[in-house]
Design a protein around this nucleic acid. Structure first.
Lengths: 242, 242
DNA sequence: GTGAGTTAGAGTCAGCCTGACTCTTACTAG
DNA sequence: CTAGTAAGAGTCAGGCTGACTCTAACTCAC
């Protein structure tokens, strides 16, 4: 695909090529402990460099699509996922992050709901890993995953990202589970409830979640702005329209 | 420099080219009112498209430099500025943001101290504008400036960016002026002082700012982490080392 | 040199939010 | 019917915030 060069001076002539990658997060119960934890899908490299190592899904940018559209398409093609939450993370472009032809990667991050995640393709070349146990990845992808985790935790405190992990209705305890899984520590249920109810972005429904072993909790609905809008109005426009 | 194409199908073959641009902010007193306000330098376009319109300083990415190094070099070449604070803002890559060859821009933002800003080149092709009165810019640069402003205000509340506008020592009133200029509203001096002193990132010196018309204020020194570190440890490493 | 003017900087106080904790309600499992 | 558990409401002390007052320290005008 990309030409290889015999020496450095030739390589320096080549303009850096552009790629789009995505870090996808989903919450699922750990199969051993049952505790809700963060997982992400990775794809196996089927060519050099880093043949057979796991890497973030990604691909090239086509001429007529926006950066965000390219991320969504690559995601669809490699993992069959179409997450509702998709946002730019960072552009990584150090000259040494890839051997041979230099690649600048514009990385997006996505959050998927459990039912979406269940539809994801899984085969010998696509698999899910616990976010804190991904092992050694291709390129600088370990660094990228760490950075995405940091951003996720930050953004969680800031606002409304948590609902991107949940369905259209949810119990307050489920929201708390999301926070606990992402932040990695337990939260006081009573205080958490009080804070959530004080925020305006949530409203109770008349339904209750039946079938549990205990008192059925009330279901709530998220009514705030689209979690993708980082409260900078035209940001989403640029990202999706162009 | 970049080839032009006669029709769309040819254009679609061309891989998008990459450019680095920077939004530079400095605080200076408004020449009319004397109030401290946000200013930024712009460069005049000396070629098509958007010939003669003002635009953000920028240029290509060279083969052996990191994204951040490219931003710093372009800054130096176009405005003679070498800001201490330089951080990635966003990658803009909509297919319609530039006529003819498609350009993906990785945009950085910089904060400069008043003495640094005074050294900036100014001629018929480089001039400073008040951040809220830049007029119509080339490409989507108005949108980019708005986004940078939004990020600056956000980041100000978050932490320690304010000190990037100030010298090595400063009075508490100067810090307050920075906040007032960026946020665009007055702050209570007494309460602001209390909050600053509560934060650990600042320590008093034994010096006082002489020469004012009134009681000389004590000078302080910033002792917190490098403002560029967004408290994600390896972030700065990636940006500068590679 | 003296008083007016101005800013530096400390202090007060009520209201809000927070974490830690208790108590009641409402369901399921046996 | 009883025990167990989670839902959900409430209490209370401490910290932070905004609004405000008061004193200290300097310069300038006269």
């Amino acid at each position: 695909m990309s030409p290889r060069y015999a020496n450095v001076s030739e390589r320096e002539q080549e303009p850096p090529s552009l790629a789009i990658s995505t870090v996808i997060f989903a919450l699922r119960p750990d199969p051993e402990t049952g505790v809700l934890t963060l997982w992400l899908p990775l794809v196996r490299r089927i060519r050099q460099p880093y043949l057979d190592l796991w890497a973030l899904p990604g691909g090239p940018l086509r001429a007529t699509e926006s950066l965000q559209d390219a991320a969504a398409r690559n995601l669809q093609e490699t993992t069959a996922l179409t997450p509702r939450y998709l946002e730019q993370l960072y552009a990584f472009g150090g000259p040494d992050r890839s051997p041979s032809p230099r690649v600048v990667s514009i990385v997006y991050w996505a959050l998927v709901q459990p039912d979406e995640a269940a539809l994801a393709r899984q085969d010998e070349n696509v698999a899910w890993f616990r976010a804190d146990r991904v092992g050694a990845l291709a390129f600088d992808h370990n660094h990228i995953v760490d950075y995405a985790l940091w951003r996720l935790r930050n953004k969680l405190e800031y606002g409304s990202v948590a609902y991107a992990f949940l369905g259209s209705t949810f119990t307050l305890a489920q929201v708390r589970e999301v926070y606990e899984a992402v932040l990695g520590r337990a939260l006081d249920p009573a205080n958490f409830r009080r804070q959530l109810q004080a925020s305006v972005h949530i409203e109770p429904t008349d339904d209750y979640l039946q079938g549990g072993r205990h008192r059925p909790p009330r279901l709530y609905r998220y009514t705030g702005p689209d979690p993708r809008e980082s409260s900078f109005p035209s940001q989403r426009r640029e990202a999706t329209e162009h």
